[in-house]
Design a protein around this nucleic acid. Structure first.
Lengths: 147, 147
DNA sequence: CTCTGTGCAAACCCTTTGCAGAGCA
DNA sequence: TGCTCTGCAAAGGGTTTGCACAGAG
């Protein structure tokens, strides 16, 4: 279950976390799976899901707060802001905390606010280039596990 | 397809939009479906999905920006902030724009920023009450289409 | 009359889960 | 040894889609 803490540091767990930390690509479970199979050819996708959730639950990694498409994971558990490419879904880290100030907002009666989810939206270099060259249509591109 | 504009105002389209506008509950497609069947008992869930996406694409409605769980729709297309209940997923409107200032942030080289997705996180009155009464466990509650 | 909209059901994508055997402490 | 972890495959939730017929303009 997602809320149980891992009690054992197994080989798969270690490799999974290592690969996640090596990547700056904020990969999906499937992308982690494909990459980690180089080192653990018999690992199963279910194990990848279980361990990513487990690592996130223990604070060793984090799940990206929402966004369209498949869930993305980040081996850097420190709180930081992300930017997501509108056209391909690629996610990158952003340096510097954007200012979010909600002291002037009025939540509906009875609601208490204790945080927020923020994600910047933009266009990644690759998609910007592609759009300039090709026609303004064709906004799809798959997201390879990069670096 | 999601990017085509509707060219005909059909009865189902009209009723769907009407019900969506009547609700303040930011319903999921399935919740819209259940409610709209009172007026259109033979409507199909597929039609609800198609039309909600279509209405959002034309600007008559909006899709809530991300969040866990099923997609939610809003009959009020004007930009405004939402707060989501951490324990039950219920969404409500927030009055007043929180300040988000990203001029001091540094996007990765080549990225251009053109917006953000922000959602406040909190606890709704119902869940706050439930937690006070019952034990601190048991965080699930289903989300009825309310109001 | 033509072309879009719709119901139906199957397909799809992503994620979770039950089970029996493998492996860590 | 005992309890967790894992692979496998099936199930599950939410959403999309192909098809043939119904309906708007």
């Amino acid at each position: 279950m997602a809320t149980d803490k891992p009690t054992r540091m197994t080989a798969r767990r270690r490799v999974l976390l290592d690969e996640l930390r090596r990547s700056r690509a904020h990969p999906t479970a499937d992308e982690v799976y494909r990459r980690v199979r180089r080192r653990l050819p018999t690992i199963s996708l279910g194990t990848v899901y279980r361990n990513l959730e487990l690592l996130a639950a223990t604070g060793a990694a984090q799940v990206l707060p929402s966004g369209e498409g498949p869930r993305r994971y980040d081996g850097d558990a420190r709180p930081h802001v992300h930017i997501r490419c509108q056209s391909c879904g690629r996610v990158a880290d952003v340096a510097g905390e954007p200012l979010v100030d909600w002291h002037a907002v009025a939540p509906p009666a009875g609601f208490s606010i204790f945080g927020y989810r923020l994600e910047l939206i933009g266009v990644c270099p690759r998609c910007a280039r592609r759009k300039r060259k090709r026609s303004p249509e064709n906004n799809k591109e798959e997201l390879p596990w990069q670096r």
